[in-house]
Simulated scan of single mutants.
Amino acid sequence: MATVSPPWAYTLQLPHDPRAPGIARSTLRAVLRAHRMADLTDTAELLASELVTNAHRYSQGPFSLRLRAPEPHRLRLGVRDANPEIPPPFKGALSPPGADAERGRGLHLVELCADRWGACPLQRGGKLLWVECVQNLECQWGDLS
Rank of each mutant, 00 (worst) to 15 (best):
G78W: 01
Q123T: 10
I86P: 05
R36E: 09
W141D: 04
H73L: 00
T27I: 01
G106Y: 12
R105K: 09
P70K: 15
R116V: 12
M1H: 09
V4H: 15
Q60C: 08
L128D: 00
A24M: 03
R19M: 15
P15S: 15
L77Q: 03
V31R: 06
L65A: 03
Y10W: 13
D39N: 06
V52H: 06
L129Q: 06
V79K: 00
T53D: 13
R19L: 15
L67N: 02
P62L: 05
G98L: 02
S145N: 14
L75F: 10
D115Y: 05
A20P: 11
S26P: 00
I23F: 10
P21N: 12
Y58R: 07
P18T: 13
A38V: 01
C120H: 14
P15W: 12
L67E: 06
D81R: 07
C139T: 06
P89N: 01
G61Q: 12
V134H: 11
R124E: 15
M1G: 09
N83V: 04
L122D: 04
S64G: 01
L67T: 00
E85L: 11
A101H: 06
G142H: 08
S59R: 05
L47R: 03
P18M: 05
R33F: 10
I23W: 12
A119Q: 09
L75C: 10
S26C: 04
L12E: 07
W117K: 11
N136T: 01
T53R: 12
A48C: 07
Y58C: 09
T3Y: 10
V134N: 11
L94W: 13
L122C: 04
E50H: 07
E138W: 14
L144R: 12
P96Y: 06
I23H: 13
A99Y: 10
R68D: 11
K127V: 09
L144A: 12
M37T: 02
R25G: 04
F63I: 00
L94Y: 15
L144E: 15
L137G: 02
E50K: 03
L12H: 04
A34F: 03
G142S: 03
P62F: 02
G22D: 14
A24W: 01
L14G: 02
S26A: 11
G118M: 07
R116I: 05
L40F: 10
P18I: 03
P70S: 15
D81K: 04
W117P: 03
G118D: 10
L47K: 00
D42Y: 08
H108D: 14
A69L: 08
C139V: 04
G126C: 02
S95Q: 14
P96A: 09
E50G: 04
D42P: 01
R19H: 15
Q123S: 14
P88V: 05
E132G: 09
Y10R: 13
C120L: 14
Q60R: 14
D17R: 14
V31G: 02
L129S: 02
A20Q: 04
R36C: 05
S59F: 08
G106L: 10
P96V: 01
Q135D: 06
L122Y: 12
P7R: 13
R74S: 07
P72H: 02
G125Y: 13
L14A: 03
H108S: 09
A101V: 01
R29L: 03
G22V: 08
T53S: 15
L137I: 00
E45Q: 11
R36A: 02
S64N: 05
A20W: 11
L94E: 14
E102P: 00
T27C: 04
H56Q: 07
G118H: 10
E111L: 14
W130H: 05
